[in-house]
């Protein structure tokens, strides 16, 4: 009997709550029965578990892709066309789960956001809770966006406004346009470097997962907070670059 394919990427053992195969009664894997190979009803698992992966952020995307194609073929609803309609429905549900899981995990940002959601962090809530904390302590709010980035954003917005006014007056200020373009390049570089920063936090996270995946440690919160911070800054810069592009094109 061959080992189920999904264990090849990750070393995660089968969940303890694995049920018996509906068809032959043997213990089943996540998607197929290990003994008879029949497709199983989708189990409520997260995307990492769906691929048999531990909840780590550094992922070998080529291996994930191989596994995705492998599972796609095996879970394809056409395969169970001649089987009962129940089996085909499970195939359909599993296939759709597979697609969602793959699309989320192969993208570094979506993968991180997904993991943070699993950790119970809502990105949009960050700013509000920081305000509430500042109010309670009477202190100044801890800014989600670092001050130097804010200065840059403000400065650039001032220049963009000037550019728009110049355009309305039919004036062309080559020096200003060049200045803005220079800013834009710097921001794009920062955008790229934030991904590297994020990846360094992945390593911290993965190391923690190796030591103790279920730990409720302050470290766990700290690492996810750092990832949230990077994602927020990245969003900010992305919006800004979009505004700059719009202003330069008009």
């Amino acid at each position: 009997m061959t080992k189920p394919a999904f264990t090849e990427i990750g070393a995660k053992p089968l969940p303890l709550e694995t049920n018996s195969c509906w068809s032959c009664g043997s213990m089943r894997a996540a998607h197929f029965c290990e003994s008879c190979g029949k497709v199983q009803p989708p189990a409520p698992v997260d995307y990492f578990s769906f691929f048999g992966l531990p909840a780590k952020l550094t992922i070998e995307v080529p291996a994930l892709e191989t596994e995705f194609y492998h599972l796609s073929r095996k879970l394809h609803p056409d395969l169970s066309a001649r089987a009962g309609s129940q089996e085909q429905e499970w195939s359909l549900e599993q296939s759709s789960l597979l697609n969602d899981a793959y699309r989320t995990l192969r993208d570094p940002i979506k993968r991180t956001q997904y993991l943070l959601r699993l950790e119970g962090v809502e990105l949009e809530e960050q700013s509000k809770s920081a305000t509430e904390q500042a109010r309670a302590t009477g202190g100044v709010k801890k800014q989600i966006v670092p001050p130097d980035l804010l200065e840059e954003v403000f400065e650039l917005n001032m220049q963009l406004e000037e550019l728009k006014m110049n355009k309305q007056m039919q004036e062309d200020d080559a020096a200003l346009t060049a200045e803005i373009a220079k800013h834009k390049t710097a921001l794009e570089e920062k955008y790229e470097s934030l991904l590297q920063e994020l990846q360094s936090y992945w390593k911290e996270w993965d190391a923690l997962m190796e030591r103790n995946p279920r730990a409720e440690s302050p470290e766990r919160k700290q690492i996810s907070a750092k990832m949230v911070d990077v994602l927020n800054r990245r969003n900010y810069i992305r919006n800004l670059v979009r505004d700059v592009n719009a202003a330069l094109e008009n």
């Binding site: 700013s127 001050p147 980035l149 804010l150 954003v153 403000f154 927020n232 900010y236 800004l240």
Partner: peptide
């Protein structure tokens, strides 16, 4: 005071 909201990219001085 210079503040910003990452949700929408607004910046306020």
């Amino acid at each position: 005071g210079l503040v910003g909201a990452p949700e929408c990219g607004d910046v306020m001085k």
